[in-house]
Amino acid sequence: MTVLDRPTGGTRHQRRTPRSWLRGGGLSTLIFMLPLLVVFGVFSWFPIGRAVVMSVQTTNLVTAPEFVGLQNFRDVLADPLLWTAVKNTGYFALLALVFGYPLPLILAVLMSEVRRFKGLFSALAYLPVVVPPVVAVLLWKFFYDGSPTGVFNTILGWIHLGPYPWLQNATTAMPSLVLEATWAAAGGTVIIYLAALTSVAPELYDAAEVDGASVLGKIWHVTMPQLRGILLITFILQIIGTAQVFLEPFLFTGGGPANSTLTVLLLIYNYAFANSLGGDYGAATALSIMLAAVLAILSGLYFRVTRSWSTS
């Protein structure tokens, strides 16, 4: 019997009994799903549930926890460092958006126009993504050495610029982090755009050319609208990713100098782990939940607003 031959619920009502469920393959489905459910439940939803519970408790994870209601949320909202962290995270997100968001698109469009060595360029663009993030940050720490003999300062010195303090100054530290983060992440997005560009029908470009469109005109009137769906997704992914930036400030500056690179996720980490005698896990989970809620709301609004723009 094929699937098409099967009677559907719309044409014939059949009471669902345990027996029919069993005969219909329900048990085998459940057995096959079980490992996934267990793994996902234990490693994803159970910790999330525990975190929600922990956010209304005071606990050092050793002695019995104490229920404190919404006190952790109030404490976090009253912490002046929270607003510093929110401001810094917003600044990072803005810089990453202005400089990091268009760059992969420009690279992808340029690479799609290249006739020879396309594979080589793709590999070069993707290479930073292959480098483990911690290794990349340690490498860039050398580049950012603030002394005149640092790598970047030496190179800039050849054209009589610098030396610049890079990470050692509250003004230049955050842009330095964004530069490295853009370098590290651009390759992945380039590959996504390159794949999307291959799906753009060549006839559209031909038609635009017949209509007398320039290269920029073709990009603006053909490429961009065709990539609209992908661009919308990468945009929200970028916002969510930058709102959770942790690795760069943690490894480069530890949030310094003078809290100028303290981000929300780093603050969560500090709440939980900066004190060797047991961190404020309640405040850490409370802030985690607030961040998750804000990002979920933001994402929901974004998709609602942009629904009509999307191609999918």
Binding site: P47, L61, Y281, L295
Partner: peptide
């Protein structure tokens, strides 16, 4: 997409 931070802390609690 946004749960990893929450998840890590929860796991620790577990």
């Amino acid at each position: 997409l946004v749960v990893p931070g929450v998840l890590a802390l929860g796991l620790l609690g577990a």
